[in-house]
């Protein structure tokens, strides 16, 4: 489409047109540079600042990096966060798949649309309140254990465990993952699935050999989002996981809220961002790689 209207005074029209164009193009560039790129760059710079007498001074020293990366507890946190987010992602993807499969292949268009609308609702409810609710449900004298005691079972300890953390992560990620998986599955060519079936391919083999490869891109994107959300969440590991040892996001909260050690928190945040960038990049490469064979 052309930028300018056909007009007699071409130069004045062109000027007006470029004013019009920039009115729509510039605001977001200015806004995001000032308040998105700016803060992130400043945070990277801040990881080299120094704190003297409880005051941060602009500087360029490696001290914070050496101090954080040289400590065992940092690496404990790092691998714990990886492990929890990894387990959370695998469990969420597996739990979501049969649900997404049902929504994509076994229900009508209308049911699918309603189901997806229902799954959007949790995004707009308070994550904190839902986690608090899980706390009460999972507690040793909570709803689940009270229910199980009627059957003569339990009580099971579910709070302050990895199980609790993963339940929390899933509260955050499961609806999103089901939605993304459903889109990925609903978009594949159904006649190919039927062809495999008619040629005598067994259901699980059909899923493995036909459906999964065709839906790969969408599925990997779902997993990447799931991992990013879990990796960056401080609420679940704190309230449901017991935070001992802390995960990286909890480390950031503690460092900022109790110690005024912003530069050290910045080191943790930069390490997290680099990690997530690598994961996302690897995911995208895997998602769009040409299929082999």
């Amino acid at each position: 489409m052309s930028d300018s209207t056909p007009a007699k005074a071409a130069s004045s029209a062109a000027r007006q047109s470029s004013v019009f164009k920039l009115t729509f193009r510039l605001p977001i560039i200015i806004w995001q540079s000032l308040f998105f790129i700016g803060p992130l760059c400043f945070m990277v710079a801040m990881s080299f600042f120094i704190v003297r007498n409880y005051r941060m001074q602009e500087d360029f020293v490696m001290k914070n990096w050496l101090k954080m990366l040289g400590r065992d507890y940092f690496w404990d946190s790092y691998f714990l966060t990886w492990g929890l987010a990894g387990i959370g992602t695998v469990v969420t993807m597996l739990v979501a798949f049969p649900a997404a499969y049902t929504l994509a292949f076994k229900v009508s268009e209308t049911v699918r649309r309603w189901a997806i609308f229902m799954l959007i609702i949790p995004f707009f409810t308070s994550y904190l309140v839902r986690i608090f609710s899980w706390y009460v449900i999972l507690a040793e004298s909570g709803v689940i254990n009270a229910g199980l005691s009627y059957l003569g079972l339990g009580p099971f300890v579910m709070l302050n465990t990895k199980f609790g953390t993963v339940v929390g992560y899933m509260t955050l990620t499961l609806p999103l993952v089901i939605i993304l998986q459903t889109f990925a599955l609903a978009n594949i060519d159904k006649s190919l699935v039927e062809a495999a079936f008619n040629l005598g391919c067994r259901p699980f083999r059909t899923i493995y050999r036909v459906i999964l490869p065709m839906a790969r891109t969408g599925l990997i994107i779902a997993a990447v989002f799931c991992f990013i959300l879990s990796f960056g969440d401080f609420v679940s590991p704190y309230y449901l996981g017991g935070s001992k040892p802390p995960t990286l996001p909890i480390l950031i909260v503690d460092t900022v809220k109790s110690g005024q050690q912003w530069p050290r928190a910045a080191v943790v945040a930069v390490v997290m961002m680099v990690t997530l960038f690598v994961v996302a990049f690897a995911g995208i490469m895997a998602a769009y790689r040409r299929r082999v064979g």
């Binding site: 992130l40 945070m43 997290m272």
Partner: peptide, 15 residues
């Protein structure tokens, strides 16, 4: 939206 909130929070606080 792809940057974890806790990281945005720290960056915004400092900025």
């Amino acid at each position: 939206p792809t940057i974890p909130l806790i990281i945005m929070a720290l960056a915004m606080l400092a900025w």
